[in-house]
């Protein structure tokens, strides 16, 4: 187990290194650079050249990369070229806000998706299954920004129940915090729970048809026991896969949702950094997402190990 974890962590380090090179490369091929942004619209070529020299933008690419990487390895992620603030706290602050949004959304997606999927699967063809099927179709068919706009129009425009934009920390009152979170979370959840629900439904139906479920019924176990003890755990295994994928989609969704709701999180920080070609901020925020996703995959694989004993190698086998 320890060997496995070491290997996986090694892979994660490798992924992060590769990713930082990729991000650096992409920003280099983008037209223009941060100097134009800093200098403003009416800057003279001399002013721009001065800024470029100050920031070292004329050095060869590999030198810029090594300078950044060397500092990053010592824990210094640099300074935002536009905002003149250290990148570390900037990203950490945005990450904290996004984590609240994404965390609550992800938990709800998993919970609602699994419950709706299991109930639909167990009573396939029943009324709940049919209603759930229509709802999931609708939610998959609607793009996220559309859902967001409809929700804003309805709940903050028409009904005036919830604020349309912004963020309040939880220290500013739980209700206030929650009211800013409801609409963005709802947008993300509606867009994503359908994946989980339909996959969970299909895998539940398949598992209920398995021989070992029939065998459990032949033992005279109650239907509740058959489902919770024999079917559910096996049916959860494919769901872990889709949840991991959904986490990736969720991080993409955050960019859209934070923009629509003016939510000051990591998504908006990334958009701004791209627009302003603020390389240190972009590097740090994309790498943060990479790290999160890499660890999410590791956690997913550990979930497989927990759910499916066949994958546990190194277990003292009995032959």
């Amino acid at each position: 187990m320890a060997g496995y974890l070491t290997r996986r962590l090694g892979q994660i380090v490798f992924t992060i290194l590769a990713m930082s090179v990729v991000i650096f490369g992409i920003t280099q091929v983008l037209p223009g650079n941060v100097a134009y942004v800093i200098a403003g619209q009416f800057a003279t070529p001399d002013q721009i050249a001065a800024i470029e020299t100050r920031l070292g933008l004329n050095d060869p690419m590999w030198q810029q990369f090594l300078r950044w990487a060397g500092a990053a390895l010592q824990g210094d992620l640099g300074t935002s070229m536009v905002m003149s603030r250290p990148v570390g706290p900037l990203v950490a602050e945005a990450l904290g806000r996004s984590a609240q949004l994404a965390g609550v959304s992800f938990l709800l997606v998993a919970l609602i998706g699994v419950v709706v999927g299991v109930v639909s699967g167990v009573r396939a063809g029943g009324w709940f299954d049919r209603v759930a099927l229509v709802v999931t179709w609708l939610s998959v068919a609607m793009p996220q920004f559309f859902i967001a706009i409809v929700l804003v129009l309805l709940f903050s425009g028409h009904l005036g129940w919830l604020p349309a934009t912004g963020y309040t920390p939880i220290s500013g009152g739980v209700l206030n915090w929650l009211s800013h979170l409801i609409l963005p979370v709802a947008t993300l959840v509606v867009g994503l729970f359908a994946h989980v629900a339909s996959l969970q439904r299909a895998s539940m139906i398949e598992t209920l048809g398995a021989s070992y479920v029939r065998a459990a019924r032949a033992k005279g176990l109650s239907e509740r026991k058959v489902i919770t003890r024999h079917a559910l755990r096996n049916a959860l295994i494919p769901t872990v896969t889709v949840l991991t994928l959904d986490l990736g989609i969720l991080m993409g969704g955050i960019v859209v949702v934070e923009t629509v709701f003016s939510y000051p999180g990591l998504g908006r920080l990334m958009i701004t950094a791209v627009e302003q070609k603020d390389l240190p901020v972009l590097q740090a925020s994309v790498l943060t997402v990479t790290v999160i996703y890499a660890f999410a995959n590791l956690i997913a694989d550990l979930c497989y190990l927990a759910l499916d004993p066949r994958l546990r190698t190194g277990h003292a086998g009995v032959r």
């Binding site: 070992y212 029939r214 032949a218 005279g220 176990l221 024999h230 759910l307 004993p309």
Partner: peptide
């Protein structure tokens, strides 16, 4: 009938490879 199953009438299946739940000891 469920009460009878397993207790008075029990069954052995064809394929032991799929009859046992892979996730339980």
């Amino acid at each position: 009938r469920r009460r009878l199953r397993g207790k008075s009438i029990a069954m052995v299946f064809q394929d032991p490879f799929t009859t046992l739940n892979p996730c339980l000891t």
